[in-house]
Each structure stands twice: as structure tokens, then as C-alpha cells.
Nucleic acid binder design. Structure first.
Lengths: 160, 160
DNA sequence: TCAATCTCCGACTAAAATACTCTTGACTAA
DNA sequence: TTAGTCAAGAGTATTTTAGTCGGAGATTGA
């Protein structure tokens, strides 16, 4: 629970790899293909292919063209692709609970009117979402990413 | 993904219920039993029983005694039981990735030296953990819990 | 043109995690 | 003694996730 799926891991690894390659100092930003990434990271080719297809469908990357020399390029600058976008593309809408996406009511829910924890959980969820939305592919390029947020999250200050 | 399991939901519902009952204005803080909670929230009895057993084993609640009039009571004040504690009791150590708990290295990992996203992900994870650690059962008692944190998490301020 | 290489898509199977059940036992209050 | 309760382990069913397979169509280079 609260764990990334492998698909999500693969997506992040692939995007990070593409970002590095495209910003290459060799001044030759190039298209990368599925096989290259799969071999680089020891990811099952077919599975990675599906992940990249999904990312392309959500316009986070673009397929350059088919055939030899084909491949993908990032559709936006690394700084403009957020972690939240990636996760949503791969997994569908994020949500801590099943009733997260039924705005206003949770009529489908077993608990109905008895459920007293929905609102607080939605708040936690919002916070996590904002966190993921505030980070981009650019932020995972460098190993040592300073995260100011960690300071601002000290327990005593969290809840008013 | 990033979703609570039903067991976790049930645990939070149960703890919230127990907290409400125990702080009852009826000045009769009482023991509550599994059946009562299960019926109140339409949770499968047997499953809830296991959840409560787990919480008891982790000393978040205490079994009052067996037999008729038996049941559970919170082992601590609602404010002293954090959401993170509850989740860890139910699901085991939290972590976004499989390598989250191998401190220092990730030698078990397929990616080995090729994995460039571990450190950034650990930071995200820390932030989420601190968030969950900063909220307690007390905070989910009231429907409208003001969360200052949401403000401090505005995207532009998240990453330095 | 033709073969190789690639994307794209959908259906499929396998494995693992989750949700739930059953059974047995021990304890306790009435 | 009996009924109500917690405790614990084994077992089953369902759902989700991970990974596979096969085929269609596009593009390139020889």
C-alpha cells in the first residue's frame, strides 16, 4: 500500500532516461526507442512498450515515427512533466479511497452516512497530490534533490 | 496505487469509532466490541476481528478482557495515535518502492547502479511519511479538519 | 521491392496481493 | 454451564498487477 506499481517505476525511469539523453552534452538530442531503455534498465521489453504507449497516449511523450530510427521524445520540457501527471497517466486518477472521485457524495460506498473519515482522508489526499504535482521529471534528474518541503512538514506544524 | 487497503480503511473507521465512544459525553467511556463496530459500519465481522487483533498486537488498542462484556479500548489518547502508526501496524513498513527499506544500498534491486531515481523517490516518501505522521486519530474525529499544510504545499514552493 | 525494424493495439496468462471465511481454542461473566 | 468474546492459523476466493503473445501497419535502407 502507498507503493508505486512497477509500471509507475518504469515510467519514471524511462522519462528520466529520456530527459538525460535529450539534454545530452553531446549536443545531439536524439530520439530513444523502447529497446534501448529496456536494455539500459533491465525492464521487460513488451511491458515497457505498453508503458511508453500509455505515456504517448497521454501526450507526455511523442512517438517520433514508426520503423527503423523511430522512437520517442519528451513532449514537454522535463520541468513541465509532473510526477502526478505520470502517475495518473499510468494508473488512472489518484485516490486514497474508492470514493475519492465521486464528488460531493459517496453514495456508492458501503458506509454511506456512517462514514466519518471521508473528509479528513480527502484532505490527506490533497496534500499528497499537491506534493506530487509540485515535483517534475527535472527534479529527479539529479541525485541530490534538496527538498525544502521536508522542513515545512514537521509534525507539530502540520495540523492546526 | 497510492490507495489505502480496505483493512486500513476499516482500522481507521474502527479507531475513530472507538475514540468517539470513549470520549462520549455520556460520561461513560466504555469498552467496545468487534461486533458493534462491524454492524455500525457494515464491515465483515471476521475481517474486522483480524484487523483489531493486529492493532492490539501493535499496542494501539488493548483488549479489555474475553467473554461477555469484553472488548477493546484505545491504548492511548486519540491524539497520540498517528495515521502512520495505524498504517504500519496493518500493512507493515511504508514505502513507495521495494528498496525503500534497504538503507544505504539497493543491492537487491534489478536496476542496481543504473537506478537514478531512488534518492528522489525516497525524498517524496519522507514527505508523505511526515504528513501521515503528523496526523492522528484525533484529527479525523471532526468532519472539518483545517489543514494548514495544504497552504504550505503550494507547488511553486515545494522544490528548492 | 523486400526484409528488417519499429510502433501500436488488444487479448491473454500467470503470479501475487487482497479480501474474506472457517475452524478451533481459551477465557470470562452471568 | 452456557453464551459471548478475543486469539490465531489455515484456507479460499476475488481482484489487481505483471508480464506475454501475436498480428497489423509504418518506415527505412539495401
Amino acid at each position: 500500500m502507498l507503493k508505486f506499481s512497477k509500471k509507475a517505476d518504469y515510467a519514471l525511469l524511462a522519462l528520466q532516461y529520456m530527459a538525460v539523453v535529450q539534454s545530452g552534452v553531446d549536443a545531439d538530442p536524439r530520439v530513444v526507442n523502447t529497446k534501448e531503455i529496456a536494455e539500459e534498465h533491465h525492464i521487460p521489453l513488451e511491458l515497457l512498450a505498453k508503458v511508453l504507449q500509455t505515456l504517448a497516449r497521454h501526450q507526455l511523450i511523442e512517438s517520433h515515427h514508426n520503423g527503423p530510427k523511430g522512437g520517442y521524445v519528451l513532449a514537454h520540457a522535463p520541468g513541465d512533466i509532473t510526477i502526478a501527471q505520470v502517475l495518473e497517466a499510468i494508473e488512472g486518477p489518484l485516490g486514497l479511497t474508492d470514493c475519492s472521485h465521486e464528488k460531493g457524495d459517496h453514495s456508492q460506498c458501503e458506509q454511506m452516512s456512517r462514514c466519518n473519515i471521508r473528509t479528513p482522508l480527502l484532505k490527506i489526499q490533497d496534500s499528497i497530490f499537491q506534493l506530487l504535482n509540485g515535483m517534475s521529471i527535472e527534479d529527479i534528474l539529479v541525485e541530490e534533490t534538496p527538498l525544502i518541503i521536508v522542513e515545512s512538514l514537521k509534525p507539530q506544524g502540520v495540523i492546526s
